[in-house]
Simulated scan of single mutants.
Amino acid sequence: MDRLLPNDEAYDLLDLTREIATRELDPKVADFEGRGEFPRDVIRTLGRSGLLGLPYPEADGGAGQPYEVYLQVLEILAGRWLAIAEAVSVHTLSCYPVYGHGTERQRKMLPDMLGGELLGAYCLSEPQGGSDAAHLATRAVRDGDDFVVTGTKAWITHAGHADFYNIFSRTGGDGAKGISCLLADADTPGLIPQKPERTMGLRSSTPAQIVFDGARVPSDRLVGAEGSGFAIAMEALDAGRLGIAACAVGLAQAAVDYACAYAKEREQFGKPIASFQGVGFMLADMATQVSAARALLLAAARLKDAGRPFSIEAAKAKLFATDAAMRVTTDAVQVLGGYGYVQDHPVERWFREAKMLQIVEGTNQIQRLVISRSLTRD
Score class of each variant (00 low, 15 high):
Y262V: 03
Y262E: 03
A263Q: 01
A263M: 04
A263H: 02
A263G: 05
A263K: 00
K264R: 11
K264T: 05
E265Y: 07
E265T: 10
E265H: 08
R266T: 06
R266Q: 08
R266Y: 10
R266N: 06
R266F: 12
E267C: 11
Q268W: 14
Q268A: 12
Q268K: 14
Q268C: 11
F269I: 09
F269A: 06
F269T: 05
F269P: 02
G270N: 06
G270L: 08
K271H: 06
K271G: 03
K271V: 10
K271F: 09
K271Q: 09
P272G: 03
P272N: 05
I273W: 06
I273H: 05
A274T: 07
S275M: 14
S275L: 15
F276L: 03
Q277S: 12
Q277V: 08
Q277W: 05
Q277P: 12
Q277E: 12
Q277R: 12
G278Q: 13
G278N: 11
V279D: 00
V279E: 01
G280H: 01
G280S: 07
G280V: 00
G280I: 00
F281Y: 09
F281A: 13
M282S: 08
M282Q: 10
M282I: 08
L283G: 00
L283R: 00
A284M: 11
D285Y: 09
D285W: 09
M286W: 03
M286A: 04
M286T: 01
T288R: 15
Q289R: 15
Q289E: 14
Q289I: 08
V290T: 02
V290Q: 02
V290L: 03
V290D: 03
S291F: 12
S291Y: 10
A292F: 06
A293S: 15
A293W: 07
A293H: 10
R294A: 08
R294Q: 11
A295T: 10
A295Q: 12
A295P: 10
L296F: 02
L296R: 13
L296G: 12
L296E: 15
L297R: 08
L297H: 07
L298K: 01
A299T: 15
A299M: 07
A300W: 00
A300L: 04
A300H: 05
A300Q: 05
A300C: 06
A301G: 04
R302K: 14
R302H: 10
R302E: 14
L303M: 12
K304L: 08
K304C: 06
D305M: 02
D305C: 04
D305V: 01
